[in-house]
């Protein structure tokens, strides 16, 4: 079976078993190893990618369901020498990263969450992280960083808004 979808902005045609999990195609065929296959059961979130803009686990996504979809991986979020996503830059500045294996998935989940929930509070951020496990950091610095990022974003938007007036 042939499945056609867009991967990080380019057309891709897959010809093999449609039940192949997306994460295997990313890692084994494209060497896009930023997407990590940690639990393969949808609990850890390390394999999170965007499918049509939604953050979903790629371990449980059979490629057959992706026909016509737009898939973005961590490598596609800020490629080449492009600037980091503001959340990535904030994690770097805050010294939030330890072993780093969970962070690509964390960034993919939380970047979509911040886009959709710019007014989120701390508890809502934590709820959004239920499917992203981190074994090193104890989470709070990650949460702090998202809180700070959303605050900065709100201030920027408010400033821009008042200038428009």
């Amino acid at each position: 079976m042939t499945v056609t979808f867009r991967l990080n902005g380019e057309d891709y045609r897959f010809r093999d078993d449609p039940m192949t999990p997306l994460v295997d195609i990313l890692r084994q065929e494209h060497f896009l190893t930023g997407t990590k296959a940690v639990c393969r059961e949808g609990f850890c979130g390390a394999c999170t990618v965007h499918v049509d803009g939604e953050a979903v686990p790629s371990c449980l996504k059979p490629v057959g369901l992706l026909h016509g979809c737009e898939v973005t991986t961590i490598e596609g979020l800020s490629s080449g020498q492009e600037a980091l996503h503001p959340l990535q830059a904030a994690f770097e500045a805050a010294d939030a990263v330890q072993c780093g294996m969970c962070f690509p998935g964390m960034v993919m989940s939380l970047s979509a969450f911040m886009r959709d929930n710019p007014g989120a509070c701390r508890a809502e951020i934590k709820s959004a992280m239920v499917g992203n496990i981190c074994r090193c950091t104890g989470y709070e610095r990650i949460v702090d960083t998202v809180v700070d990022c959303l605050d900065t974003h709100r201030q920027t938007t408010e400033t821009a808004g008042s200038m428009n007036v």
């Binding site: 890692r27 190893t33 770097e92 500045a93 010294d95 990263v97």
Partner: peptide
């Protein structure tokens, strides 16, 4: 000093090649 980590950016971009990424 509160030196930040030099490996953070690659880890955040998914570019760090852990052993498991070297197949």
């Amino acid at each position: 000093m509160n030196l930040p980590r030099r490996d953070a950016q690659d880890k955040l971009r998914g570019r760090t090649k852990y052993t498991i990424d070297r197949v």
